[in-house]
C-alpha cells in the first residue's frame, strides 16, 4: 500500500486535519512523547485561526523550549534564563497593539525568573504566559525543579524530594492568581484530545482578553517528561494523571465574572 501524505491527499480524500501553516514544517528536537510539540501546535492553530500571525510576537525561554522560534513562524525573541516575561513586557510596551506571549518552563518561570513572573503579573501586563510545568529540569538532564513533587526522584533529589531539604512544590499559578493585575488563570494538560481542546479554548480566550487590554493571562500546562521521568510516553501520561493532577488539578483558577 502506498503511504499517504496529508500534503498531497488522494483526489477522492478530504483533508480534515493538517499542520497549521504557522507551524514550520521542520523536525522538532523534542523527545518522543513530550508535550511541548503539542502545545506549539495548539498555539499556532490559534494564531492561524485568529489570523494574527502578523500581530503576534513570542518570547522563548532557556530550557527545553529554547528553540521554539525554530518551529513557530512568527517574530520571536529568545530571552535569558528566567527573563522571558521582562522581555515580553518591553515588547508589549513598544508594540501595544501586538499579541505578545511568553513561553516558559517551570525552572525558568518559577525558580530563576520568579521575580520577573510575579512583577509582570503584578503590573498586569497585557501578555499571555504559557507555563509548561513538568516538575523537572528537562534540558539539563532531570534535576529537581521548584515544582517537583514531594518524594519525586530527580538527579538532584536522588532519594526523592523532601520538605526538610527542599521545601514544598511551588504552585505559582495559584500564587499569581491572587494578584489584581492578573485577569485569567487556568491549568491544563495536553495528554488527551479533550485536554488539548480545552487548552485551545483557553488560548483563544486569553488572546481575546489581551486584545481588550484586560490584564495578564496565565495558562499552566501540566506536562510530562518521559526522558527524565524515565518512562514511556504512555506511562508518563498515566503518571501525570495519578501524581501531578492531585497537586496541580486542571481547571480554571481565576476568570473574569
Amino acid at each position: 500500500m502506498e503511504p499517504t501524505s496529508t500534503a498531497h491527499p488522494a483526489p477522492d480524500m478530504e483533508v480534515v486535519y493538517k499542520r497549521p501553516d504557522t507551524l514550520l514544517d521542520t523536525r522538532m528536537h523534542y523527545c518522543p512523547g513530550c508535550g511541548h510539540g503539542v502545545v506549539h501546535r495548539v498555539l499556532m492553530e490559534v494564531v492561524q485561526e485568529l489570523d494574527i500571525q502578523q500581530e503576534t510576537i513570542g518570547v522563548a525561554p532557556v530550557g527545553c523550549s529554547v528553540f521554539a522560534y525554530n518551529y513557530l513562524d512568527i517574530d520571536m525573541q529568545e530571552a535569558a534564563h528566567g527573563r522571558a516575561s521582562a522581555v515580553a513586557t518591553a515588547i508589549k510596551r513598544i508594540h501595544p497593539s501586538k499579541y505578545v506571549f511568553s513561553y516558559q518552563g517551570d525552572g525558568d518561570l518559577a525558580a530563576i525568573g520568579t521575580a520577573e513572573t510575579i512583577h509582570t503579573c503584578n503590573r498586569g501586563e497585557n501578555i499571555l504566559f504559557l507555563f509548561i510545568n513538568n516538575g523537572i529540569y528537562g534540558m539539563t538532564g532531570g534535576q529537581m525543579a521548584p515544582t517537583t513533587l514531594l518524594g519525586m526522584k530527580s538527579t538532584t533529589s536522588p532519594t526523592g524530594r523532601t520538605v526538610e531539604t527542599s521545601g514544598y512544590p511551588l504552585k505559582i499559578a495559584d500564587l499569581v492568581a491572587m494578584l489584581p493585575g492578573v485577569v485569567y488563570v487556568s491549568r491544563h494538560s495536553v495528554h488527551t484530545p479533550n485536554a488539548v481542546r480545552q487548552l485551545k479554548k483557553a488560548m483563544i480566550r486569553s488572546f481575546q482578553y489581551q486584545k481588550e487590554g484586560r490584564g495578564t493571562c496565565f495558562l499552566e500546562v501540566v506536562s510530562n517528561c518521559p526522558s527524565n521521568w524515565k518512562m514511556t510516553p504512555v506511562e508518563s501520561n498515566a503518571w501525570l494523571e495519578e501524581h501531578m493532577f492531585p497537586l496541580y488539578p486542571p481547571g480554571e483558577i481565576k476568570a473574569p465574572k
Binding site: 525573541q77 535569558a80 527573563r83 521582562a86 513586557t89 518591553a90 510596551r93 513598544i94 508594540h95 521575580a115
Partner: peptide, 23 residues
Amino acid sequence: IVLQAESEVASINMVYGAAGAGA
C-alpha cells in the same frame, strides 16, 4: 515609555526586549 522595573536584572532584559522590538 518609562518603566521602573523590579530589579536591574529585569531592566536590562527589558532593554533587550525593547531594542529587539526596534525601539
